[in-house]
C-alpha cells in the first residue's frame, strides 16, 4: 500500500512539476474545464441522490456542463498546438459559435 502511495506521490509531484511549465492561457482554460466538469459531476450526484424528476432540466444542466467541458478542451488542444501563443481569432470564433449553439440547444430543455 505504502509503495502504491509512493508511486502516486511521485506521479503527482512530477506531474505538478511539469504542469507548472504550462502557459498561463492553457491553465485558465484547464481551470475552466475542470470547473465545468465538477459542476457536471455535482449535478449527476445530486440527480442520483434526489432523483432526476424534471428530467429535461437535468438534461439541460448536465449536458450544458459536459458540453462546455468538451468544447473548452477542444479549444485547449487547439491552443496547445500553437504552443499557447495567442491563437487566430478564427479558432476562438469557432469556439464561441459552438458554445452559443450549445446554450441555445440546452435552453430548450430548461422548461
Amino acid at each position: 500500500m505504502a509503495q502504491h502511495l509512493d508511486t502516486l506521490k511521485e506521479i503527482a509531484s512530477s506531474f505538478s512539476a511539469a504542469y507548472v511549465k504550462t502557459p498561463t492561457k492553457l491553465k485558465i482554460l484547464d481551470a475552466f474545464s475542470v470547473c465545468a466538469l465538477a459542476t457536471a459531476v455535482l449535478q449527476f450526484v445530486y440527480a442520483k441522490l434526489v432523483g432526476t424528476f424534471p428530467f429535461n432540466a437535468f438534461l439541460a444542466g448536465f449536458f450544458c456542463c459536459v458540453g462546455t467541458f468538451v468544447l473548452t478542451l477542444s479549444l485547449r488542444m487547439k491552443v496547445a498546438e500553437h504552443g499557447g501563443k495567442p491563437t487566430a481569432a478564427k479558432e476562438f470564433g469557432g469556439y464561441a459559435l459552438a458554445m452559443l449553439t450549445l446554450f441555445i440547444a440546452a435552453v430548450n430543455y430548461i422548461g
Binding site: K78, E91, G93, A98
Partner: peptide, 11 residues
Amino acid sequence: GSLAWATALFF
C-alpha cells in the same frame, strides 16, 4: 479540426 465545422456538423 475546427470547432466551426463541428457546429456545422451539429446542424
